[in-house]
Design a protein around this nucleic acid. Sequence first.
DNA 1: ACTAAATCAGACATTGATGTCCAATGTCAA
DNA 2: TTGACATTGGACATCAATGTCTGATTTAGT
Lengths: 200, 200
Amino acid sequence: MSKTKTQPTKASARKPRRADAERNIAAITTAALEALASNPDASMAEIARRAGVVRATVYMHFPTRESLLDAVMEYATSLVADATRGAEPERGEPKEALERVLLATWQPLGRFHSVLGINISRLSAKELHRRHLPVTTQFIPLLERGQAAGIFRSDVSALWLIAVLRAIVHVASTELQAGRLSKAEVESTMLTTALAAITP
Amino acid sequence: MSKTKTQPTKASARKPRRADAERNIAAITTAALEALASNPDASMAEIARRAGVVRATVYMHFPTRESLLDAVMEYATSLVADATRGAEPERGEPKEALERVLLATWQPLGRFHSVLGINISRLSAKELHRRHLPVTTQFIPLLERGQAAGIFRSDVSALWLIAVLRAIVHVASTELQAGRLSKAEVESTMLTTALAAITP
DNA sequence: ACTAAATCAGACATTGATGTCCAATGTCAA
DNA sequence: TTGACATTGGACATCAATGTCTGATTTAGT
């Protein structure tokens, strides 16, 4: 995460919340993320149960299911964005940097892929793209840097490369989940395939 | 499709249905496929409306929603399987054969990807794999033939290659849908990326 | 033309989920 | 410690969807 409690999001200047409220909001958000990852149709009751609160408490902080989904989406995105940032996509050779970033992000990305799937039907393509910005703005410079250096293929757009990478990451976590490959095998195979797909 | 009405599926020996019933079953199945492709949560009422029948008629042929989903899944699979077969995956050089098959199947595959998504949460991985057999049994020999010839990479399993190919096809149809690429661009980009990903 | 099969139109019961409300109780912060 | 904030537990209304049933009507097969 990046802000959530530390800053009041400069523009909105939200009224201070009590500590237990803050705690519950966090619990609900993470519980929702877990619940929705295992079942995209998880009910508000199920989410409340997981968060250890009563249903009314969820509605206290998230007036509708939609608003909770929005919050969960933003939270998941921030987790992936933070993992990406932590892998320093700007540092070093593009190829090494990409490997570093993929290794750091494939697990959260895989974990949240089904949550992302919820939004595919819920939001427009434009809106979806907008919400992925915290992640994509970090990937694009890395890919373009590699393209400029002739290390990544330039006959397709960086956006295509991103889509392909994400798809391969998805395959990787699916194969791990299915137990067809070990974690180490998945990581090595994923890196090999990813590089092969985007190298000229 | 392959059988549906011509053969009585040797084992089951189903009682003959009247022609209008047969017609309605077909109408319901295709209507359901369309409806579910655009909205995976489409209701029985919506599907009946699209098929031009009343809801009770749907329940006449498909006693539960589940059973309808099963039928739709099988239908979609058969469409892809037929398209694959029509592209003659056994003929010619593996690379050319793969290109031929991909060009023949990427559109139906993309179209039905969301329907497939329904089943991901609905069925076990094993069961899912079993239902894809009509397609995978055609792809595996092609890929293994290419691997034996040293044209496709052998450091990963044919199953991994299939998963990667399907992921790339999915990316392709998503990009077309989003209007970021023309159909011709999508096809060329998809083929390039697919080959790059699975070539040693 | 006759009969059996199938569809229609619509009512009906049931279920599960969303969202609202309230009174009682608990917890935080000043 | 006190008042404001928050949570609880439960009731409640609403809604949409599933699945059943029936009687009247249409349609197909022989």
